[in-house]
Design a protein around this nucleic acid. Structure first.
Lengths: 345, 345
DNA sequence: CCATGAAATGAAAGCGCTTGCAGTCAGGGT
DNA sequence: ACCCTGACTGCAAGCGCTTTCATTTCATGG
């Protein structure tokens, strides 16, 4: 089937017997055009099956109605939720998401940022505070408004919507301390290039320190975020530094890995071992026992980042930093520290 | 800080003492330009911090180097994996992903498709075969190459990369039948607007039918894809049509919901009740017992869709339909049908 | 040292749409 | 009947880059 070239606005104008300018206005500035005229234009549009040429419009208006987002692996459930919410929020306002994801690789992030800015993203969403300096420079220089998500910028240099990972992490650790635990292990995410993982880890350290306790290096293992890595890490901890009565996962999958492995080994949770996570993914509440964790409103973060960006594009000002709530959700995997000796008995 | 307007290519040309045309070629067609000249242009680029204006380039070349994808909820782990893989594949080729996601709403899908086509997507990725007729018409009329993912188009009208959901589902059901199960229940996904869910369900029906068995309506429940809904559905099945010895979930979260609920009620899996899922998400292999399921290579589907689209954009031809393997992964949640009476005993 | 064809460069015409500015036209005031 | 106002509409100049075609430059061979 030989495709006739798609009709342009000038064809519509001709068919409607008006000028190009009027046709344009009839479509994008409807009430600058007499009702009657507008009708003729719309008929012509329908008749020809005209589809506006976004690129040309973008060149003329210097607006693409597109928002760029550079996320770490989108297949991490929490980023997936945020992506979905963000896309929905934007779509409702006639915007579209330009998405790039990387595997915690800052150079890939920089390249992606460049690509999105070049493509004319009207605004950008980044995750966290760890970036190549050029990444923010590119943004700054191009003048594209951006939002940092997940983390909070202490210095107040960036617009951001996130939470205090350290603060939340302290809550978890204190919860455990309050239950009488003194020997605590941590399965942290990979902290390199990941301020969230770092802050979560140091939150535990701080909480312990404030009660005069230490977190020995051998009680900390870093692992990529996944259930399988959580299991492995838990095994390693058991081998390398047994005697702990609670383990904190850098996120829920890691914690769930630890939980499953503990149960597989006949370790009673929470009788002999308490387990806590971070993020509150769906499964956390469904497992028996439910996983004690921090609820991170990831979809809400995505949505809010979108809202703020759209507001800023309309010239409104928004508070520079938006802190989201991140409550501790105490469920069944945490309980009083065992009386006697820690596992192994 | 007063931002000076970003430099254009003509500024670069001037700074390098060459014409606009030469500057353009130095950047996009390097070996049409003498080494020396090219060097001067590159210096100028670096000095001015020039960033190409993608929109203008797109208008001139009629290529945006952008691929549009319209997915059902990206927060479903399997779509998240595909999205990530697709984005990576595209990035490697200098392309970017324009993403829209919807909640199984065909009108939203149509709107999103229009939006992406208007924005000049060079290619499109859709999921499944259920669409508004206009959706495919828009694609057809605009001449944008597209790939249908997940499903296989029997009629061979579309390029697609996916699998036979019915076929895979038959494998699951036969596996159960071979284990001696005769009373089987299904927690299907919502089949409305979702050919995958429909095919999976009818695969079970077919398998039973081929052994002269029926799947009574009361043994089928549709539920949105989530662990919580899986639990609820399982409860309802138990109330409404007890006596089954195996339950098949329309996807893994549903099956996991059933599994957790069964265990919570003291039903032995697989001793008294077998459970099978579909998709093979990470957790399926980690739970004790491991979930029997169909392995759907979702990341690979995303990657392959990207590869095919890129190939077609280069003028190559690819086989119209690409069927991906979807093997049965038999794990611990399925076992021989209980000898005596089905649960409740 | 000059002619000669290939290689490199430049001029200019778009790509399809928006928008500032000027022109048109109908209707109201006098 | 005439001028003025205000609402529409049309003209044409961009938006920033690519690309065709003509022109210039350059290295060779005669």
């Amino acid at each position: 089937m030989p495709r006739t070239p798609s009709p342009r606005l000038v064809d519509v104008a001709r068919a409607a017997g008006v000028s190009l300018a009027t046709a344009s206005r009839a479509l994008s500035e409807p009430d600058m055009v007499r009702e009657n005229t507008r009708g003729r234009v719309q008929e012509a549009v329908a008749m020809l099956g005209y589809v506006p040429h976004g690129t040309a419009r973008a060149l003329a208006t210097r607006r693409t109605r597109t928002i760029g987002a550079v996320f770490p692996p989108v297949d991490n459930p929490i980023f997936a939720g945020a992506t979905h919410a963000l896309a929905q929020e934007l779509a409702a306002a006639g915007y579209t998401l330009l998405l790039a994801s990387h595997d915690y690789d800052l150079d890939a992030e920089l390249a992606a940022t460049r690509a999105l800015v070049e493509r004319g993203a009207d605004g950008m969403v980044l995750v966290g505070l760890d970036h190549r300096p050029e990444t923010l420079a590119v943004l700054e220089r191009s003048g594209v408004p951006y939002e940092i998500t997940w983390s909070l910028d202490g210095a107040g240099n960036h617009h951001c919507v996130g939470l205090s990972h350290r603060g939340a992490s302290i809550k978890v650790a204190q919860h455990l301390l309050d239950l009488g635990h003194r020997e605590i292990a941590v399965i942290a995410g990979i902290t390199n290039n990941n301020d969230r993982a770092r802050e979560r880890l140091s939150g535990v350290r701080d909480a312990l320190a404030s009660r005069g306790l230490k977190l020995p290096a051998k009680r900390v293992i870093e692992a990529p975020f996944s259930v399988a890595r959580g299991r492995e890490a838990f095994v390693k901890l058991l081998e390398r530094a047994p005697g702990f009565t609670a383990v904190i996962g850098g996120n829920d999958p890691l914690a769930i890995g630890a939980l499953l492995e503990a149960r597989a080994r006949g370790i009673d949770v929470p009788g002999e071992m308490s387990v806590a996570g971070f993020d509150d993914i769906e499964l956390a509440g469904e497992l028996p026992p439910g996983l004690t964790t921090i609820r991170v409103p990831s979809a809400e973060i995505g949505r809010e980042a979108g809202r703020r960006l759209l507001a800023r594009l309309e010239g409104k000002t928004v508070p520079r930093v938006r802190e989201m709530p991140a409550p501790l959700i105490a469920r069944g995997t945490t309980g009083p520290a065992p009386k006697g000796k820690a596992w192994p008995r």
